[in-house]
Design a protein around this nucleic acid. Structure first.
Length: 324
DNA sequence: CATCAGGGCCCTG
DNA sequence: CAGGGCCCTGAT
């Protein structure tokens, strides 16, 4: 694989409509302020952009925008897409952005919960969503491990420059991820040169795993949380923290909150108790008691609201707890 | 300059 | 099941 610096222009447009289960909040679901700045997806002026990879090797730039209660989907590609390709892409988008999820019970719970009530009405009711395939999200959780944000960002940036494909559509330049089969063939030394450290081995082993199990993601969608977690943790490099993110963001388990990382513990401790010293077990059991089967969705709403407010006007205690 | 934890996880004993 | 080691970075 060689470095391709010139963006590939995707000029052929096709437009479709998807209908989410109500109540649906477009920005809350598509715009995630806590996500770090890497050119793999972008929410700009009410439009969400990202790139999907086809099995055939093609790239499809996707733009999502609100159209009353529906979601307008515009595909950008180098040639006209066939009906079966479009059906696949639409079904995939329906899943990745959780358009099928019924959150009515959660919204009822919001009514008599002071913490959830404090979330800005503009987007209390957001859903788990993820522009990426399970493999792609796994690559992201891999760079998150044992690194601060700035390092995670630069590791992923270097990987995308070398192995990704830059595409241009609808006025944005974004990277498509590499495919697992090609990355599986890369030399570990070459990966290590990108300063990903011991993660080089993780990338190779996960890529080989997906090469051998191309239907892994589909086989664990719709499977119960504990079975799905067991399958995920068999993948080299996936521990409790990564499994949690994958279960919620990719597999839509709204209760995937059984482990909290230290930095998240501090933030939730501050919110629950007014100080940052609670133990992570304590935070998990408080959340279970308070929100039950909806606990990860609740925590997600809280975090995104917090980061969103933090971007507009710095929240001092939060600034002290997140490290950039 | 050196030291060290960090948005974990694997492996060993 | 506890704890050392792992790559690199930026904070101290």
């Amino acid at each position: 694989m060689s470095k391709r610096s010139k963006p590939l222009s995707l000029t052929c447009e096709q437009s479709h409509l998807l209908i989410p289960t109500p109540p649906f909040l477009f920005e809350g679901t598509l715009h995630k302020p806590s996500h770090f700045p890497v050119k793999v997806d972008a929410y700009i002026d009410g439009r969400h952009h990202f790139v999907m990879r086809q099995d055939s090797g093609g790239y499809v730039g996707v733009v999502l925008m609100q159209e009353s209660e529906a979601v307008r989907v515009v595909f950008h590609s180098i040639r006209e897409l066939e009906k079966n390709e479009i059906d696949y892409l639409l079904a995939e988008i329906n899943w990745r952005f959780g358009l099928f999820i019924d959150i009515r019970h959660f919204m009822e719970m919001v009514q008599d919960d002071p913490i959830l009530q404090s979330i800005d009405k503009k987007w209390c009711g957001m859903r788990p969503s993820c522009s990426f395939s399970l493999y792609e999200l796994l690559c992201i959780t891999t760079v998150l491990q044992n690194a601060q944000v700035s390092r995670s960002v630069s590791m992923l940036g270097r990987m995308l420059e070398k192995y990704g494909q830059l595409v241009r559509f609808s006025g944005v330049d974004l990277y498509a991820f590499w495919d697992h089969d090609s990355l599986a063939k890369v030399e570990e030394k070459e990966l290590r040169a990108l300063k990903v450290g011991y993660r080089a081995k993780t990338f190779l082993r996960t890529s080989m795993f997906f090469m051998d199990n191309p239907d892994f993601e589909y086989s664990i969608r719709g499977v119960g949380k504990s079975d799905a977690k067991r399958c995920l943790k068999k993948v080299y490099g996936v521990g409790p923290a990564s499994a949690g993110y994958l279960l919620f963001e990719s597999l839509k388990h709204l209760d995937a909150f059984d482990y909290v990382s230290p930095w998240e513990t501090k933030i939730l401790s501050h919110l629950f108790l007014g100080h940052a010293n609670a133990a992570s077990d304590e935070i998990v059991s408080m959340s279970k008691e308070r929100w039950g089967e909806w606990r990860m969705l609740a925590v997600h709403n809280i975090f995104e609201d917090l980061f969103w407010r933090h971007r507009r006007e710095k929240i001092d205690w939060l600034e002290a707890l997140i490290r950039l």
